[in-house]
Design a protein around this nucleic acid. Structure first.
Lengths: 248, 248
DNA sequence: AAGTGGTCTAGACCACTTA
DNA sequence: AAGTGGTCTAGACCACTTA
């Protein structure tokens, strides 16, 4: 059972939705019809469709049927992959390495690096460019052994996560991110090509593999050129959801 | 079938997890044991546990079992509800109304209000306070009819979403949010009690009900005092995920 | 009354882990 | 070999919608 049926069906239907086989508001095939077409049980069809609902492609209404959703803005399904999105718009991404070396966590006390239970980490620091315009300053910390392996690959052309997942076989299972606004320090301003004190959007991320922390990164984006997008469902929609108070 | 079994089981287990019945890293009861205890089928237990996995409480490993996750930071399950979070920390939230009236969308061309297909909307503008310190400036646009009904309630004490969901019976099914950094305008600075040009975090949100837009809001937070938290799973972890380029 | 999606059962078979 | 969670089936019953 290498590729689950529900997964194959989700991919097939998503592709057909992307190709415009149905238009926004169209009646989507009913569960029974899909069961016959794909020759699977109701459970499997349901699981495939639940995923497409989660991705924002479909609405399901008991008694009425399944409908293709109006795409007011880009769907989550289409959103993944910054570089793909950016290339599709005609930009040429590249990156410039600033540092690829072992570091002592004592030199980075401003970040929460103690979750790694190690005094030394491997730091990959780079500026990501779009059409030679600097867009993001990235500081990415990995456990020493993994960092050394990453350093053997072409970090300019390939994304670090793609190497970790594809070449090193590391599963990136989940991540917690914090996003906030700040003012550029002299160092950040220099790399982003803005003035010191300009507004920047900061994204901190802690990635877990097999339940253990595997990467901490902090990314600085030029404000007003980049946004972060989040999709919410049902009970997640509350006043101030996702917002947390920073304790001093 | 008013309250699904899987839902009841999820709630029961979540409560027991919150009460510390198992510690981080503990072996969680196996599926078969839970099936016996709750007297339900494997499918129902699986569905209940899948939800707890999604909320960040559990890890499941085929061949090994289900484990209680280390809580490196607050779990998503605990995160929901800004006011609850804030009250638990000893703050006293309140709000100050700035405007509660019908408006012409032509006066707000900087926002994407045309998705409502209406020239007039109802605007609720307020400053949210924590211990009398201004924290968020909120501009919340609703369809006229809904806005008029909301205006009949106590908008100072209660959250607008809580009134809409609880009193008006409006289901808030999904939302798309954009978060970015910016510099405070004179108006924003005055209400937030900061200097003009200070860094602010901006959150724009479009909420859907029954597939149709029901609220657009824009919230301004003082930078460095507030962060936005997002949790990612598996294939969502990519370079620059969630980041989108702002077209000029 | 007929059709829709939502919940649930009882059980089979699988890959993987540990012994 | 025994135990774990992951996938899938065939089918029952439910609430809801439309006619």
């Amino acid at each position: 059972m290498p590729i689950p049926l529900h997964f194959q069906i989700t991919n097939d239907l998503r592709e057909r939705l992307e190709n415009g086989e149905w238009k926004a508001g169209d009646h989507f095939p009913g569960d029974k019809e899909l069961m016959q077409v794909y020759g699977v049980s109701s459970t499997t069809i349901r699981r495939a469709l639940d995923e497409l609902v989660r991705e924002g492609w479909l609405n399901r209404r008991p008694g009425k049927g399944t409908f293709v959703k109006k795409q007011y803005v880009e769907t989550l399904g289409k959103l993944t992959g910054f570089f793909d999105q950016v290339r599709a718009k005609g930009y040429h991404p590249s990156s410039q390495l600033l540092r690829v070396s072992e570091v002592d966590i004592a030199d980075f006390e401003e970040y929460e690096l103690d979750v790694f239970n190690s005094k030394k980490l491997f730091l990959i620091e780079k500026v990501q460019m779009l059409d030679k315009e600097p867009t993001v300053l990235v500081k990415s910390f990995w456990p020493i052994e993994i960092g050394r392996q990453l350093a053997n690959y072409n970090l300019i052309q390939e994304g670090t996560y793609e190497i970790a997942k594809g070449e090193l076989g590391i599963t990136l299972e989940e991540a917690q991110q914090y996003i906030y606004a700040s003012l550029a320090t002299a160092e950040e301003a220099k790399h982003l090509g803005v003035n010191e004190g300009a507004a920047v959007m900061v994204m901190k991320r802690l990635v877990f593999s097999q339940g253990e922390p595997v990467e901490f990164s902090i990314n600085f984006y030029q404000a007003d050129k980049y946004m972060y997008r989040v999709d919410l469902k049902n009970e997640m929609i509350q006043d101030g959801n996702g917002i947390i108070v920073v304790e001093n």
